[in-house]
Amino acid sequence: MVPFDFTYHRPSSIEEAVRLFERLHKQGKTPLYYGGGTEIITLSRLNLAFADAVIDIKHIPECCVLRIEQNELTLGAALSLTSIEEANPFPLLTKTASEVADRTARNQITLGGNVCGQIFYRETVLPLLLADCHVVIAGKDGLKQRSIHEVFQQRMRLEHGEFLVQVKIDLSYVSLPHAHTKRRKQGKVGYPLVTVAAIKKDERLHVAFSGVCPFPFRSKTVEEQLNARHLPIETRISRALQYLPKPILNDTEGSVEYRLFVLMNALSDILIPLEEG
Protein backbone atom coordinates (compact mmCIF):
# COMPACT_ATOMS: atom_id res chain seq x y z
CA MET A 1 0.00 0.00 0.00
CA VAL A 2 1.58 3.23 -1.15
CA PRO A 3 0.36 5.87 1.33
CA PHE A 4 0.57 8.74 -1.16
CA ASP A 5 -0.48 9.32 -4.72
CA PHE A 6 1.62 9.42 -7.81
CA THR A 7 1.02 9.46 -11.51
CA TYR A 8 2.32 6.63 -13.61
CA HIS A 9 4.01 7.24 -16.94
CA ARG A 10 5.09 4.78 -19.51
CA PRO A 11 7.37 6.39 -22.09
CA SER A 12 8.32 4.35 -25.12
CA SER A 13 11.56 6.09 -25.92
CA ILE A 14 14.58 7.36 -24.07
CA GLU A 15 13.96 10.94 -25.18
CA GLU A 16 10.37 10.81 -24.04
CA ALA A 17 11.44 9.53 -20.62
CA VAL A 18 13.99 12.26 -20.13
CA ARG A 19 11.59 14.95 -21.36
CA LEU A 20 8.90 13.65 -19.04
CA PHE A 21 11.23 13.78 -16.10
CA GLU A 22 12.18 17.39 -16.89
CA ARG A 23 8.59 18.43 -17.39
CA LEU A 24 7.38 16.82 -14.18
CA HIS A 25 10.26 18.33 -12.31
CA LYS A 26 9.45 21.77 -13.68
CA GLN A 27 5.91 21.31 -12.46
CA GLY A 28 7.39 21.03 -8.98
CA LYS A 29 6.98 17.29 -8.80
CA THR A 30 9.31 14.60 -7.52
CA PRO A 31 9.50 12.03 -10.27
CA LEU A 32 11.31 8.71 -9.99
CA TYR A 33 12.39 6.35 -12.70
CA TYR A 34 10.66 3.09 -12.15
CA GLY A 35 12.22 -0.29 -12.91
CA GLY A 36 10.79 -3.32 -11.17
CA GLY A 37 9.22 -1.05 -8.60
CA THR A 38 9.98 -3.48 -5.81
CA GLU A 39 12.00 -1.02 -3.83
CA ILE A 40 9.87 1.99 -4.64
CA ILE A 41 6.74 0.21 -3.44
CA THR A 42 8.23 -1.39 -0.37
CA LEU A 43 10.08 1.72 0.82
CA SER A 44 7.05 3.91 0.17
CA ARG A 45 5.03 1.82 2.58
CA LEU A 46 7.49 2.75 5.28
CA ASN A 47 7.72 6.37 4.18
CA LEU A 48 11.34 5.84 3.23
CA ALA A 49 10.76 6.78 -0.40
CA PHE A 50 8.57 9.35 -2.03
CA ALA A 51 7.50 10.19 -5.55
CA ASP A 52 4.52 11.93 -6.99
CA ALA A 53 5.24 10.61 -10.45
CA VAL A 54 6.89 7.43 -11.60
CA ILE A 55 8.36 6.87 -15.03
CA ASP A 56 8.33 3.21 -15.98
CA ILE A 57 11.29 2.49 -18.21
CA LYS A 58 10.37 -1.12 -18.97
CA HIS A 59 8.77 -0.18 -22.28
CA ILE A 60 11.79 1.60 -23.68
CA PRO A 61 13.28 -0.82 -26.23
CA GLU A 62 16.89 0.08 -25.42
CA CYS A 63 16.31 -0.76 -21.77
CA CYS A 64 15.19 -4.27 -22.63
CA VAL A 65 17.99 -5.43 -24.90
CA LEU A 66 20.07 -8.44 -24.24
CA ARG A 67 22.51 -8.59 -27.12
CA ILE A 68 25.96 -9.83 -27.98
CA GLU A 69 27.54 -7.88 -30.79
CA GLN A 70 31.10 -7.08 -31.77
CA ASN A 71 32.66 -8.53 -28.70
CA GLU A 72 30.33 -6.70 -26.44
CA LEU A 73 27.48 -7.83 -24.28
CA THR A 74 24.74 -5.26 -23.85
CA LEU A 75 22.24 -5.61 -21.05
CA GLY A 76 19.24 -3.30 -20.78
CA ALA A 77 18.67 -1.79 -17.36
CA ALA A 78 15.04 -2.89 -17.32
CA LEU A 79 15.80 -6.59 -17.78
CA SER A 80 14.56 -8.62 -14.88
CA LEU A 81 17.19 -10.54 -12.97
CA THR A 82 15.61 -13.87 -13.88
CA SER A 83 15.60 -13.04 -17.58
CA ILE A 84 19.33 -12.40 -17.33
CA GLU A 85 19.83 -15.61 -15.36
CA GLU A 86 17.93 -17.63 -17.93
CA ALA A 87 19.80 -16.22 -20.91
CA ASN A 88 23.03 -16.59 -18.93
CA PRO A 89 25.29 -14.41 -21.10
CA PHE A 90 27.64 -13.70 -18.17
CA PRO A 91 27.86 -16.64 -15.78
CA LEU A 92 29.21 -14.63 -12.84
CA LEU A 93 26.32 -12.21 -13.15
CA THR A 94 23.94 -15.15 -13.28
CA LYS A 95 25.38 -16.54 -10.09
CA THR A 96 25.28 -13.24 -8.30
CA ALA A 97 21.78 -12.39 -9.46
CA SER A 98 20.40 -15.78 -8.55
CA GLU A 99 21.25 -15.22 -4.91
CA VAL A 100 19.41 -11.91 -4.67
CA ALA A 101 16.03 -11.99 -2.88
CA ASP A 102 13.99 -14.96 -4.11
CA ARG A 103 13.02 -16.09 -7.56
CA THR A 104 9.54 -14.59 -7.68
CA ALA A 105 10.93 -11.25 -6.54
CA ARG A 106 13.65 -11.51 -9.16
CA ASN A 107 11.03 -11.83 -11.84
CA GLN A 108 10.38 -8.18 -11.04
CA ILE A 109 13.66 -6.80 -9.80
CA THR A 110 15.53 -5.18 -12.67
CA LEU A 111 19.24 -4.92 -13.16
CA GLY A 112 19.02 -1.10 -13.22
CA GLY A 113 16.85 -1.01 -10.11
CA ASN A 114 19.19 -3.28 -8.20
CA VAL A 115 22.26 -1.26 -9.16
CA CYS A 116 20.61 2.15 -8.66
CA GLY A 117 18.53 1.29 -5.58
CA GLN A 118 18.70 2.74 -2.11
CA ILE A 119 18.88 -0.62 -0.33
CA PHE A 120 22.61 -0.80 -0.02
CA TYR A 121 23.45 -4.35 -1.00
CA ARG A 122 23.09 -3.80 -4.78
CA GLU A 123 24.65 -7.19 -5.26
CA THR A 124 24.44 -7.36 -9.03
CA VAL A 125 26.81 -4.47 -9.36
CA LEU A 126 29.66 -6.68 -8.18
CA PRO A 127 30.17 -8.51 -11.50
CA LEU A 128 29.77 -5.23 -13.34
CA LEU A 129 32.54 -3.66 -11.28
CA LEU A 130 34.74 -6.67 -11.83
CA ALA A 131 34.21 -6.64 -15.57
CA ASP A 132 35.15 -2.97 -15.84
CA CYS A 133 31.94 -2.49 -17.76
CA HIS A 134 30.57 0.64 -19.29
CA VAL A 135 27.24 2.15 -18.54
CA VAL A 136 25.00 4.01 -20.93
CA ILE A 137 23.26 6.87 -19.22
CA ALA A 138 20.45 8.98 -20.60
CA GLY A 139 20.03 12.59 -19.55
CA LYS A 140 19.03 16.02 -20.75
CA ASP A 141 21.90 16.10 -23.18
CA GLY A 142 21.25 12.71 -24.67
CA LEU A 143 23.14 9.49 -24.13
CA LYS A 144 26.57 9.14 -22.68
CA GLN A 145 28.74 6.15 -22.09
CA ARG A 146 31.01 6.02 -19.08
CA SER A 147 33.15 3.53 -17.27
CA ILE A 148 31.26 2.09 -14.33
CA HIS A 149 34.13 3.11 -12.09
CA GLU A 150 33.46 6.74 -12.91
CA VAL A 151 29.79 6.66 -11.99
CA PHE A 152 29.52 3.98 -9.38
CA GLN A 153 31.17 5.04 -6.17
CA GLN A 154 29.38 3.32 -3.34
CA ARG A 155 26.21 4.05 -5.28
CA MET A 156 25.28 5.23 -8.73
CA ARG A 157 26.19 8.88 -9.02
CA LEU A 158 23.64 9.97 -11.56
CA GLU A 159 22.85 13.58 -12.29
CA HIS A 160 19.37 14.81 -11.65
CA GLY A 161 17.06 13.45 -14.33
CA GLU A 162 19.48 10.83 -15.58
CA PHE A 163 18.82 7.15 -15.75
CA LEU A 164 20.71 4.00 -16.52
CA VAL A 165 19.84 2.62 -19.95
CA GLN A 166 22.29 -0.20 -20.45
CA VAL A 167 25.48 -1.79 -19.29
CA LYS A 168 28.06 -2.88 -21.81
CA ILE A 169 30.51 -5.61 -21.00
CA ASP A 170 33.58 -6.51 -22.96
CA LEU A 171 33.06 -10.12 -24.00
CA SER A 172 36.57 -11.06 -23.00
CA TYR A 173 35.44 -10.75 -19.38
CA VAL A 174 32.44 -12.99 -19.44
CA SER A 175 34.31 -16.23 -19.79
CA LEU A 176 37.10 -15.45 -17.35
CA PRO A 177 37.59 -17.74 -14.37
CA HIS A 178 35.36 -16.43 -11.61
CA ALA A 179 33.93 -17.19 -8.21
CA HIS A 180 31.13 -15.93 -6.07
CA THR A 181 29.91 -16.59 -2.57
CA LYS A 182 27.09 -15.19 -0.53
CA ARG A 183 27.09 -15.88 3.20
CA ARG A 184 24.00 -15.19 5.22
CA LYS A 185 23.18 -14.96 8.90
CA GLN A 186 21.23 -18.19 8.56
CA GLY A 187 19.29 -19.98 5.85
CA LYS A 188 19.22 -19.72 2.10
CA VAL A 189 17.16 -16.61 1.49
CA GLY A 190 17.93 -13.16 2.77
CA TYR A 191 20.29 -10.25 2.72
CA PRO A 192 23.97 -11.03 2.76
CA LEU A 193 26.20 -11.03 5.75
CA VAL A 194 28.89 -10.77 3.14
CA THR A 195 28.94 -11.36 -0.59
CA VAL A 196 32.22 -11.65 -2.41
CA ALA A 197 32.66 -11.99 -6.16
CA ALA A 198 35.93 -12.35 -8.01
CA ILE A 199 37.39 -12.92 -11.44
CA LYS A 200 40.88 -13.68 -12.57
CA LYS A 201 42.20 -11.60 -15.42
CA ASP A 202 45.75 -11.81 -16.66
CA GLU A 203 46.67 -13.69 -13.50
CA ARG A 204 45.32 -10.87 -11.36
CA LEU A 205 42.35 -11.18 -9.08
CA HIS A 206 39.57 -8.64 -9.23
CA VAL A 207 37.46 -8.75 -6.10
CA ALA A 208 34.26 -6.94 -5.18
CA PHE A 209 32.19 -6.94 -1.99
CA SER A 210 28.67 -6.36 -0.76
CA GLY A 211 27.38 -6.46 2.80
CA VAL A 212 30.80 -5.69 4.28
CA CYS A 213 30.32 -1.94 4.35
CA PRO A 214 27.06 -0.06 3.81
CA PHE A 215 27.72 -0.06 0.07
CA PRO A 216 29.20 -2.43 -2.48
CA PHE A 217 32.73 -1.76 -3.57
CA ARG A 218 35.80 -2.82 -5.40
CA SER A 219 38.99 -1.31 -4.09
CA LYS A 220 42.34 -0.93 -5.76
CA THR A 221 44.29 -1.14 -2.53
CA VAL A 222 42.40 -4.19 -1.36
CA GLU A 223 43.13 -5.86 -4.69
CA GLU A 224 46.79 -4.91 -4.54
CA GLN A 225 47.10 -6.59 -1.19
CA LEU A 226 45.25 -9.66 -2.37
CA ASN A 227 47.45 -9.94 -5.40
CA ALA A 228 50.72 -9.66 -3.50
CA ARG A 229 51.44 -13.22 -4.56
CA HIS A 230 54.77 -13.52 -2.78
CA LEU A 231 52.87 -13.64 0.51
CA PRO A 232 50.78 -16.51 1.84
CA ILE A 233 47.07 -16.07 1.19
CA GLU A 234 46.15 -15.65 4.86
CA THR A 235 48.58 -12.78 5.22
CA ARG A 236 47.28 -11.18 2.08
CA ILE A 237 43.73 -11.44 3.26
CA SER A 238 44.36 -9.95 6.65
CA ARG A 239 46.39 -7.16 5.10
CA ALA A 240 43.71 -6.49 2.53
CA LEU A 241 41.10 -6.16 5.22
CA GLN A 242 43.00 -3.27 6.70
CA TYR A 243 42.23 -1.29 3.58
CA LEU A 244 38.47 -1.55 3.55
CA PRO A 245 36.91 1.75 2.50
CA LYS A 246 34.81 1.95 5.68
CA PRO A 247 34.74 0.05 8.98
CA ILE A 248 32.92 -3.26 8.77
CA LEU A 249 29.18 -3.14 9.32
CA ASN A 250 27.68 -3.93 12.70
CA ASP A 251 23.99 -4.59 12.29
CA THR A 252 21.21 -7.12 12.68
CA GLU A 253 22.79 -9.46 10.15
CA GLY A 254 25.90 -9.78 12.24
CA SER A 255 28.45 -8.07 14.41
CA VAL A 256 31.71 -6.61 13.15
CA GLU A 257 33.80 -9.42 14.57
CA TYR A 258 31.66 -12.16 13.17
CA ARG A 259 31.45 -10.51 9.76
CA LEU A 260 35.20 -10.27 9.74
CA PHE A 261 35.45 -13.95 10.58
CA VAL A 262 33.01 -14.89 7.84
CA LEU A 263 34.65 -12.57 5.36
CA MET A 264 38.10 -14.06 5.91
CA ASN A 265 36.77 -17.55 5.33
CA ALA A 266 34.78 -16.45 2.33
CA LEU A 267 37.81 -14.83 0.80
CA SER A 268 40.07 -17.78 1.24
CA ASP A 269 37.36 -20.12 -0.03
CA ILE A 270 36.99 -18.33 -3.30
CA LEU A 271 40.44 -16.96 -3.86
CA ILE A 272 42.51 -20.09 -3.34
CA PRO A 273 40.81 -22.18 -6.01
CA LEU A 274 40.61 -19.21 -8.33
CA GLU A 275 44.28 -18.51 -7.99
CA GLU A 276 45.25 -22.11 -8.42
CA GLY A 277 42.75 -22.86 -11.16
Binding site: Q186, G187, K188, V189, G190, Y191, T252
Partner: peptide, 8 residues
Amino acid sequence: LRTYRPIR
Protein backbone atom coordinates in the same frame (compact mmCIF):
# COMPACT_ATOMS: atom_id res chain seq x y z
CA LEU B 1 9.76 -10.89 7.27
CA ARG B 2 12.67 -9.52 5.24
CA THR B 3 14.85 -9.50 8.33
CA TYR B 4 12.95 -11.86 10.63
CA ARG B 5 13.21 -14.97 8.51
CA PRO B 6 11.25 -18.10 9.26
CA ILE B 7 12.37 -21.37 7.75
CA ARG B 8 11.70 -21.69 4.02
